[in-house]
């Protein structure tokens, strides 16, 4: 038994850099493959709506924007960032990004729409 067993470690800390991350000033770097905000690529979507079926919180809505054109609406206030939709999507139209700073004061801003965009790589018929 020894009182003040941590004394040496504690005194050593004075000369070390603090472990604290000064967050808003110093941004965190998310690792590769982090499951952040979901990105939607309308050019790849075929409208099977499997993501809607598998989403545990019903955060995704896929709407038809025209013949063979689909757009997505995400409710980020419901999303739990499990990225099951990314795994489910057969055409890889959905993907995770490293974006984590998603807090909003206004709940309406959490509803993110991905309108249909013409994919330049896809040849027009």
């Amino acid at each position: 038994m020894r009182p003040g067993k941590m004394l040496r470690e504690v005194l050593g800390s004075v000369f070390k850099k603090p472990a604290t991350n000064l967050y808003p000033a110093q941004k965190m770097d998310m690792p590769e493959g982090f499951r952040g905000k979901i990105k939607f690529d309308s050019g790849k979507c075929i409208g099977c709506k499997m993501c809607m079926r598998d989403c545990p919180t019903n955060a995704i809505t896929i709407n038809k924007a025209g013949e063979g054109k689909f757009e997505a609406v995400f409710d980020l206030s419901r999303c739990i960032y499990c990225a099951q939709c990314v795994d489910t999507c057969p055409k890889k139209a959905l993907s995770s990004t490293k974006e984590v700073e998603l807090a909003q004061l206004d709940k309406k801003k959490l509803i993110v729409a991905f309108p249909y965009k013409e994919d330049p790589a896809k040849p027009k018929e």
Binding site: S13, P18, T20
Partner: peptide
């Protein structure tokens, strides 16, 4: 106290 605990304080 904070610096001894390796914090910024």
């Amino acid at each position: 106290y904070a610096r001894l605990q390796n914090r910024v304080g």
